[in-house]
């Protein structure tokens, strides 16, 4: 499955980034670019919709760390609908403290300021 990514900004400042396929060293630049756009758009929250993401390699993890560092501690990052492999990868490498994991997109949580 090829990697696909997209970004849409909600009116209240949530950057919704959807990723599918495999996020590895050959595709992470796309994800990094979207994070850059979210930063440029002054995102107040970042929601990563990962239901279609089957694999995340260390290069993808680094973009998550990069996002957290660039966005600052005031901007929460939500990891949503992540598949088991991706959840495992995030937790085993200790990133679960840097993001909030949600089973589904819940506007009442993600878009509540």
């Amino acid at each position: 499955m090829s990697f696909e990514s997209s970004l849409d900004m909600t009116s209240n400042g949530v950057a919704r980034i959807t990723l599918s396929g495999k996020l590895d060293s050959s595709t992470y630049r796309e994800f990094e670019g979207l994070i850059g756009q979210a930063i440029a758009n002054k995102a107040k929250r970042v929601a990563l919709l990962l239901g279609g993401l089957s694999f995340m390699a260390s290069a993808g993890l680094r973009v998550l760390v990069f996002a957290k560092q660039k966005l600052g501690s005031s901007v929460d990052i939500y990891v949503i609908e992540a598949q088991e492999q991706v959840v495992d990868t995030i937790t085993m490498t200790g990133l679960e403290h840097s993001v909030t994991m949600l089973d589904s997109y819940d506007a009442a949580v993600v878009e509540k300021f």
């Binding site: 390699a57 260390s58 993890l61 490498t93």
Partner: peptide, 8 residues
């Protein structure tokens, strides 16, 4: 993924 092993 050796980086992931190191990260763990």
């Amino acid at each position: 993924d050796g980086t992931m092993v190191a990260d763990e």
